[in-house]
Each structure stands twice: as structure tokens, then as C-alpha cells.
């Protein structure tokens, strides 16, 4: 099976979340997956532009999607934000004729882009193409005894009708992943609640309160550590300074540890 994918890192992964990027590439390589970074990709915009009359904001995503199509590959991203935006825009290109026509008129691709590319989150790739069983076999340094909670946040799950990532109210992909790397996944109810997102710029107190509730629930449910796939969630969780704070890591870092990829190789 050819495990070559187009890869959309996203801007945060090039700067503040280099760990997420580097661990993703290294773990992918270790699992026999080739991630080919798209040439000259541009920022997806961070939030999906909801306005059905705004096409300009969606063009960066369309360009990335079309690039993957031209290479005949699925498009993989590991950042929750990018995943959300790319997949929502792709849905527009597939199902909303007005947006599709306008975006294509503007972009002037060789042939019109009609949502052909399949957008995958790295976790989906691990689950469906690599297989959690393979990871279980290759995890030579399993995280045995680690009680880890998955923090999904919003952008990975909602709106579920479009993202089709997992059950939006009772997700389990990350738990299955954690189980594969040998850890003990702990389900807690607040794992799909919002961390406050971009409001932390203006109202850090407010986001702190939300994050506090999440940590409290995670801790009382027995988590010793949280993992996430979203740099913004990671930032908000990290900034929390209340009593229930738990260590937070990216999913790919956990995977790297299990595969024995040397920690610290990534540039901090």
C-alpha cells in the first residue's frame, strides 16, 4: 500500500508548535508514511469563514486542496484548526455550487476543483491507513501505566455532519490511539468542551475559567496528563495556572515516545 500523502502543516506548526510538526513527520517516517509538504501553502485562516457570501477567505484552503488533487493524494494535517477549515471548505467546494463556481473562476485551475480531495487528520491516517494494531506492535516503549486523558476540543469534532471525524458527544479515536501506544486512556465528560479559543487574547480570565473546569473534570476522572492535537487548545491549557493543572502534550509527541523517537530531537 502506498502511504504517500500531501501534508499541510499550517502556520502555527512552523513557529510556536514546532514540536507538533516535527514529531508528526518523524513518527510518520517511522511508520512508513511519506508526508509531502505542499509547495507554497498559505495559512488556512485559523477559523472557517462561515459567511456563505465570502469566498476570498476560503481560497488559500482551496489552493491546498487542489494541489493535493493534482498530485492524486489525500491531504493530511495534524492541526485541529487546519483540519476543521480545510474540511469545511472542501465540503463547500463539493456541495455549494455558488462558492464552488466563484472560487474556481477566481483560481483558474487547469480543471475546476470540485471537492475531490479527501482531507484526513493525522489520527485518521494512523487509524485507517497505518492501523492502531501496527502502532501497538511497533510501540517498543509503550506508555504503560500512564493515565492519559484526550482533550478533543471543538474544531476536531464539530460540526460533525461535515467533519465526520468521530461521535461529537462521545468521541473515542484518541482514546483508541492512547490504548495503542500502551497508555491507559481515561474518558472524562468535558473532553469535547471549548477551552475558550481565541478569546484568551481579550479575556484571559474567562478562558482560564473554562480551562479550569476541563482540568477539574479530567483530574477527578483520574487523568494524570492530557493530550491534544490543537495548538490553540495547547496554549490555553498551558497558560492555566489553577490548582488542577495537568501536564499537556501533543498527540504526536506521545506517539514519538512510544516509538522510541528520541525526545528533544525536535527544536523547541
Amino acid at each position: 500500500m502506498d502511504l504517500t500523502y500531501s501534508y499541510f502543516p499550517g502556520c502555527t506548526l512552523k513557529t510556536k508548535a514546532k514540536d507538533l510538526d516535527i514529531y508528526t513527520r518523524e513518527t510518520a517516517a517511522a511508520l512508513g508514511v511519506t508526508l509531502v509538504e505542499i509547495d507554497n501553502w498559505q495559512c488556512c485562516g485559523g477559523v472557517y469563514p462561515l459567511g456563505s457570501d465570502e469566498v476570498g477567505n476560503k481560497l488559500a484552503s482551496v489552493r491546498a486542496l487542489n494541489d493535493a488533487k493534482e498530485h492524486g493524494r489525500d491531504l493530511v494535517t495534524v492541526c485541529s484548526g487546519c483540519f476543521h477549515v480545510l474540511k469545511c471548505v472542501n465540503d463547500d467546494m463539493k456541495n455549494v455550487p455558488d462558492i464552488r463556481d466563484r472560487a474556481n473562476r477566481y483560481s483558474q485551475f487547469d480543471e475546476p476543483y470540485q471537492g475531490e480531495t479527501k482531507v484526513l487528520h493525522y489520527l485518521e491516517l494512523l487509524r485507517d491507513a497505518v492501523g492502531f494494531d501496527t502502532i501497538r506492535k511497533k510501540a517498543e516503549h509503550p506508555l504503560t501505566g500512564h493515565r492519559i486523558g484526550a482533550y478533543y476540543g471543538c474544531l476536531l469534532l464539530r460540526p460533525s455532519g461535515i467533519l465526520e471525524f468521530d461521535d461529537p458527544e462521545d468521541p473515542s479515536v484518541i482514546e483508541d490511539f492512547l490504548e495503542a501506544v500502551g497508555a491507559t486512556p481515561v474518558k472524562y465528560q468535558m473532553r469535547n468542551e471549548c477551552c475558550g479559543g481565541y478569546r484568551s487574547l481579550e479575556e484571559p480570565e474567562f478562558t482560564n475559567r473554562l480551562v479550569g473546569k476541563i482540568f477539574a473534570d479530567a483530574k477527578t476522572s483520574g487523568c494524570e496528563e492530557l493530550v491534544t492535537a490543537c495548538p490553540l487548545c495547547f496554549y490555553n491549557l498551558q497558560k492555566y495556572n489553577g490548582p488542577d493543572k495537568l501536564p499537556v502534550r501533543y498527540i504526536s509527541e506521545v506517539l514519538a515516545q512510544a516509538l522510541g523517537i528520541e525526545a528533544g530531537k525536535g527544536v523547541r
Binding site: 499550517g10 502556520c11 502555527t12 513557529t15 510556536k16 508548535a17 495559512c43 485562516g45 485559523g46 477559523v47 469563514p49 477567505n57 492541526c79 484548526g81 479559543g197 481565541y198 484568551s200 487574547l201 481579550e202 490543537c230 495548538p231 490553540l232 495547547f234 496554549y235 498551558q238 497558560k239
Partner: peptide, 26 residues
């Protein structure tokens, strides 16, 4: 809503691009 000049004082070395982009976009 937030003016550009309001922003520098609010960011710290770890503020991810995703956050700034989101604010700008929204």
C-alpha cells in the same frame, strides 16, 4: 472590535499564530 494597537500588549512569546489569525479573521 479589537483595534490593531490593542494587540501587542496582549500577546506573549507562546501566543500561537492560530490565535492571532482567528482574532483577525473574526
Amino acid at each position: 472590535h479589537l483595534q490593531p494597537e490593542d494587540i501587542p500588549s496582549r500577546i506573549d512569546p507562546d501566543t500561537p499564530q492560530q490565535l492571532l489569525m482567528s482574532v483577525l479573521r473574526r
